[in-house]
Design a binder for these strands. Structure first.
Length: 475
RNA sequence: GGCGACGUGGCCAAGUGGUAAGGCAGUGGACUGCAAAUCCACCAUUCACCAGUUCGACUCUGGUCGUCGCCUCCA
């Protein structure tokens, strides 16, 4: 039975959906005004594994993840510049060109990491009517008030505010940097709709004049549109708990009178030298840059080697460790060869089923991927021992199926052996044969020169029994 | 200042009230022409520190120190 840590209750709870086998899942997506960084990778890999594991458990998941393409402000809630508009000015493009460009970049990076696409990727800009409707309802019910062209949510009207984060918003004393907007009744109140003013490019017409929706509103509107008024799971980064998710709850429950979310799931942050990696700190590593130095699956494994609720401190040593670990998995997979039919031996069937049980036990415990990986590595050791004894192809196929199911299926780690494509594979075979020939004729100096040269070019050589050498490209 | 999380071997990282998974790195051995891969063995009497509860705590309670996050857009 899967249990998940619910931020709302601050404990692990058995997960059951409202209407099994269907699960509605909403994850806060990125604001698309720059390329994605490692922080995004950790977040979306974590949630991808949640989706994959739910599907592995045979749930029918609808995975919704928004794209925020309505500019929100660079500063606090009431001043500063629209981020998309700012970037548009910089790149001399339309704001929507910025959104399009970086949304495409985001999807491409996520694909590279092996994340499954969300079932729906709704854009905030495409759901302004829904947001306006939500505001109308909140105004009617007395949860919101209008000041000129601005609409604010009246936090004092919603006593549950603060339940999720344990923060009411009025405990802000010294040390905080908020500058209170003059037209709010209460500093805790937050914008539902903002008057666009003169220089705001992204704007829509509304009953309150030209303007644009508040940041928190889009998630409420889109989540409810596609998943209903009460959704099973809502996730996002830990840094979104307050104020973003707190405000979402207030808006949504205020409007519908129903509980908005049953399970709140939050993943922890990526740090660099112990400091949070963030756009505003300028210490982020772009995924596109990272992928030039590290295989995307190395990055994925690196992320999954720590728990999603723990911070991940980014380091090259860590990546190097993950790379070695991944190579161990890939080597094992390639030793298994191609799958075939047949009945596996009792010993292998037992190994496979105990591995799967161990794997599930860890994953059921709030997606404990480090524990699940430990089960896999124990399996790899046992499997390597079995391979020494020349097992049947049926045995090997059984082990392949397990890897496909757990490592590839549930964790999304691709253990592909061919990365170069057909022609380079053929070339590798020819070079492997050449080294085999040289060794057979005891021309060791020449054979080793070939091996050294290949190593320099990024290929590993392994001598196999039978006089043939295997040449494979490094990760 | 308020709220919250965390502190496990050289590095990373799980974990249970009954005496510490796994990965990386390292050491020794088997295998190899030499390697690589693989296997075997070794690698935390100890889980920040100090009290307390308990027959027994790394795991529960209290305190101390340290690190980090949120309180402003951020995954």
């Amino acid at each position: 039975m899967l249990s998940l840590y619910n931020t709302m209750t601050r404990k692990k709870q058995e997960f059951t959906p409202i209407a099994p086998p269907f699960v509605g899942l909403y994850i806060c997506g990125p604001t698309v005004y720059s390329h994605s960084h490692l922080g995004h990778a950790k977040s979306y890999v974590s949630f991808d594994v949640l989706v994959r594991y739910l599907r592995y458990l045979d749930y029918k998941v609808r995975y919704v993840q928004n794209i925020t393409d309505v500019g929100h402000l660079t500063d606090d809630a009431d001043s500063g510049e629209d981020k998309l508009q700012k970037q548009a000015k910089l790149e001399q493009l339309e704001p929507m060109e910025i959104a399009e460009k970086y949304a495409a970049s985001f999807f491409s990076d996520m694909d590279t990491l092996g994340n499954q696409r969300p079932d729906i990727s709704p854009r905030a800009s495409g759901h302004v009517p829904e947001q306006i409707e939500l505001i109308k309802t909140l105004l009617e019910k007395g949860y919101a008030y209008q000041v000129g062209g601005n609409i604010y949510f009246d936090v004092s009207s919603f006593p549950e505010y603060g339940q999720l984060s344990g923060r009411t918003g009025d405990d802000q004393k010294s040390g905080m940097r908020i500058s209170v907007a003059s037209d709010k009744r209460d500093p805790r109140d937050f914008a539902l709709w903002k008057d666009s003013g003169e220089d705001h490019i992204l704007k829509w017409n509304s009953p309150w004049g030209w303007g644009y929706p508040g940041w928190h509103l889009e998630c409420s509107a889109m989540a409810m549109r596609y998943l209903g008024e009460t959704i099973d799971i809502h996730g996002g980064g830990l840094d979104n708990v307050f104020p973003h998710h707190e405000c979402e709850i207030a808006q949504s429950k205020g409007a519908t009178g129903k509980d908005f979310v049953r399970f709140w799931i939050h993943n922890n942050m990526v740090t660099v030298d112990g400091r949070k990696m963030g756009k505003s700190l300028g210490n982020f590593t772009l995924l596109k840059d990272l992928f030039e130095r590290w295989d995307p699956m190395v990055v994925r494994l690196y992320i999954l080697r720590s728990h999603y609720r723990s911070p991940l401190d980014f380091s090259d040593d860590g990546l190097a460790g993950a790379k070695s670990a991944l190579e161990r998995l890939i080597t094992f997979r390639s030793r298994l060869g191609d799958p075939d039919n047949g009945i596996a031996s009792q010993a292998v069937l037992e190994l496979v089923s105990s591995t799967e049980a161990q794997f599930r036990k860890s994953m059921d415990d709030d997606l404990n991927t480090p524990g699940a990986l430990a089960a896999i590595f124990e399996f790899v050791r046992a499997g390597n021992i079995i391979l020494e004894g020349n097992p049947s192809t049926a045995d090997k196929s059984e082990m392949i199926a397990l890897l496909d199911n757990l490592v590839k299926g549930a964790l999304g780690i691709e253990l592909s052996t061919e990365s170069g494509g057909g022609s380079s594979e053929e070339l590798c075979n020819i070079l492997g044969e050449l080294r085999g020939y040289l060794r057979k004729n005891k021309l060791f100096q020449e054979a080793d020169k070939l091996r050294d040269d290949l190593a320099e070019a990024g290929f590993s050589v392994r001598d196999l029994p039978g006089g043939f050498s295997e040449v494979t490209p490094d990760l």
